[in-house]
Design a protein around this nucleic acid. Structure first.
Lengths: 173, 173
DNA sequence: AAACACTAAGTGATTACTCACTTATCATAG
DNA sequence: CTATGATAAGTGAGTAATCACTTAGTGTTT
């Protein structure tokens, strides 16, 4: 990975997240990255290839987080970690998440790859906690997390920490 | 409102919702609507004006629904209606909601106009039901609804009706 | 006849992408 | 050590197509 290659990925992610994928031109990415436009196509073949490289990059970091949760033993500890996941997104990861959430609505792009691993984590938790409908409870938590993530990524004021505590209370965590 | 004018609004909404605002060209809207491209600019001034006309159109229908809930008396009945709102989106309203949710992520566009009216409805409900933190509970419900709406609009399988029932049970509705 | 709805053929700017070319990297042969 | 040559990295000026938008003009209503 060249330095210029990384610059392209970095500024493309930032621009895609801020203005949207199709509203961001390759020429703008090149200009902002201080690179010739041709270089983008040399390294990433086309605009979509650039997007895929960005997504693949982010997905790898994601797997690490998932695995670290999966290795925990105590069910309530796992549930706590899962629920507060949206709150643990740190500043430099935000553009990636914004891009991911924006792309969901982009027709063809939508990707459920995060959904199943999460279910695999949550269902055993609710089984261990003797909930009546573990699968349904898992889906509900995932819906909640989706809402929380949107809430946080779009910076809608409110105190997210308090909402988290409220959810913890409801699940007796 | 001319027939062609309505055709433009209708097909533009459909295309914006399917492919995104900036990925949809005015020429495509015109072609699909069976109309000359110039007509779009005559009636709506520019592409953004077309978008605003679509949004204004939808917002008016929205106000009607909000008011009908606001006029109810029984707190639990209100809460029930609010929570099942995402499930009552019928097929011909879906494109509007998809567009609205997609636009949230479009940087400059985001619009909180739905948030405050909803809070005004929910806070009195939780006060009447003697919840400890009415405002926080309202925010949580709104976050949940946001998640549910995404879930439904993106057609992620699962049984939304069952999830709704589970939520009802948790709020003792 | 005046306002209105509408079309067809434009406008310059910008789009994603290509191509011919130069420069840097680096292993191996003399 | 240096020269050679292959490969990858990078440039900048192109390309046709498409973009949002305009303009000049044609029918239709009132």
């Amino acid at each position: 990975m060249t330095e210029k290659q990384e610059r392209i990925l970095e500024t493309a992610l930032s621009l895609f997240a801020k203005d949207g994928f199709s509203a961001t031109s390759t020429s703008k990415v090149a200009r902002e990255a201080g690179v010739s436009e041709g270089l983008i196509f040399r390294h990433f073949e086309n605009k979509e290839g650039l997007l895929n490289a960005i997504l693949e990059n982010g997905r790898q970091k994601l797997t690490v987080i998932f695995d670290s949760i999966h290795h925990l033993e105590e069910p309530k500890e796992i549930l706590r970690r899962v629920i507060e996941l949206p709150l643990t997104i740190d500043e430099d990861q935000r553009p990636f998440w914004k891009l991911l959430y924006a792309l969901k609505w982009q027709a063809d792009v939508y990707d459920d790859s995060m959904s199943n691993p999460m279910k695999d984590i949550l269902i055993p938790v609710f089984e261990a906690l003797n909930y009546h409908q573990p699968e349904l409870e898992s889906e509900l938590v995932m819906v909640l997390m989706d809402g929380m993530a949107s809430h946080i990524l779009l910076k809608r004021s409110g105190n997210v920490e308090d909402i988290k505590e409220l959810i913890f209370k409801k699940y007796d965590l």
